[in-house]
Design a protein around this nucleic acid. Sequence first.
DNA 1: TCAAAAGTGTTCTTATTACACCCATGG
DNA 2: CCATGGGTGTAATAAGAACACTTTTGA
Lengths: 235, 235
Amino acid sequence: MFEFGEERFFTSAITVDNVIFGFDDGEIKILLIKRGTTPFKGKWALPGDFAHPDEDLDFASARVLKELTGLSNVYLEQVQSFGHPNRHPDGRVITVAYFSLIKISDFALQASGWASGAQWMSLKDIPELAFDHNEILDACFSKLQRRVRVQPIGFELLPPKFTLTDLQQLYHAILLPPPDKSIDKRNFRKKILAMDLLIDLNELQEGVAHRPAKLYRFDPSKYRKLVESGFSFEV
Amino acid sequence: MFEFGEERFFTSAITVDNVIFGFDDGEIKILLIKRGTTPFKGKWALPGDFAHPDEDLDFASARVLKELTGLSNVYLEQVQSFGHPNRHPDGRVITVAYFSLIKISDFALQASGWASGAQWMSLKDIPELAFDHNEILDACFSKLQRRVRVQPIGFELLPPKFTLTDLQQLYHAILLPPPDKSIDKRNFRKKILAMDLLIDLNELQEGVAHRPAKLYRFDPSKYRKLVESGFSFEV
DNA sequence: TCAAAAGTGTTCTTATTACACCCATGG
DNA sequence: CCATGGGTGTAATAAGAACACTTTTGA
C-alpha cells in the first residue's frame, strides 16, 4: 500500500473547528463550549471534533454544528487550516477552521457528549481559549468582515422578520467602523433597498415606545441570483 | 497521552500542494511535475509533499517551492484544504493547497528527488492531473482572480523592469475579461499610475520594431503601505 | 513608407458622500 | 407632552466608462 517510508507520515489527526457566529442585542456573538475532556479540560474552546475516517471536511464541520445546535442547512464556509507542530499536546493535529452563521432565533442547544457547556459570548468578552483557538477566531472574524463586503450573507444572521435598523446594526457590529465614519442611515437604506433583496412585509413592529419600524424579509431567490453574478457590496 | 479511543484518529497524513503561477508570453503558466512515484506515477501533478512531523504548513509549502525552484521569499498564500476520504489511494490524506507567484525570470529548475520532470503549462492546456489536483488548481486560480482585484500582487509575476503594456497583459491574463469588455488602455494606465506604485526608470525598450515603451519598476515600500491600509483595486 | 505598438485627454455617466427635519408611538 | 427611534431627499463631489488620433521605431 505504501511507498517505502511513506507510512511514517500516516500518524497525524485532522480536526475541524467551527466559529459559530450569531447576532443578538446589537452584537456579534460566538458560540463557545467548555471542554469536558483533556487536553484543556474546563477551558473555553471552539466547538470542534476529529474528522472521522469516512468524512469529508465540510461534512465533519456540518456534523459538529448539528450535534451542538440541532441545525443543518446552515451557511458554512471553510476559512483556513492551522498546523503548527505543537498546537495540540496529544500529537500532530491539523485543524481546518470553518465559520458558520446562524439565526439565534433558530437556536436550541443540543445535549452533546463532548461539551460540558456551551455559551454565546460577545466578541469583546472572549477569554483565553484552548489550543490556538483565539488565533483561529480572529482569522474567521476577519474573513467574515471581508465576506460581508462582497456578499450579503449578513441576512443569515437575522431572524425571518427584521427592520432596516436591525440590518444596519448588524453591519455595524461586523464592520466595526471607527466613530468618525459611522454608517449613515439614509445612505445605508438607499443602498440596501436599491439592491432589491428585501421584501416589505407591510407589517410594523409592535410594543415599542416610539414610532414602529416596518418589517422586511429577505428574498432568497434574488439573493441567489446576485451571488451567482458575483456583485460587490460596500456599505 | 491519548484520551480513550482518541488514538484511532492519528492515522492520517497531511500534504501541501502548490499551485505555482508564472507569467510568460502574455499567458499565466502553472508549474507542474511529472510524478516519479506511485500513486499516479507518470501523471502530471501539482508539486507537493507530505508535511514533515516538525513542520508548520506554511513552512512545508515554502520548502516544496524551494526544492523545486530554488526560490525563497516568494509570495505564498494558503488557499483551501481538501479532504475527501478517498482522494488519495494510500490512505487518509488531507492536503492544504497554496498558491505562489514567481517571476519566471528568476526561475531555474532544481534537481529534486520526487519529480522526474517539471514543466510550465498554460492554463488552457492543463491535462488531467493526479488526485484531485484539477479541482485544487481551479480553486487556486479563482482565489488569484479575487486577490488581484484587491491587492496589487500582480507585480510578483513580472520581471524587475516592465512596460505598462506588460502589466496590462498580465491583468488581462488573470482576469480573462469577456471580449466585449476588454480592459481599456487609457483608463488602465490612468488608474495604475494614480496608485503611485510605479517608478519611471527613464529607460526605453530596445530592439522592438515599433515605438519603444518606457520601462517601469515597482516601488515595494509604497506597496507595503498600500497593503497595510487595505485598499481596493478594480481594473 | 509601412506596419506595429506606444502614448495621451476629455466628456459623459454613475456612484458616493454629506447633511437635518418631521413622524408615530408608549409612557 | 415628552422621549425615543423611524423615516425621508437633494445637492456636491468623486469615480468610472467610453472613445480616436499622433508618435516612434525597425524593417
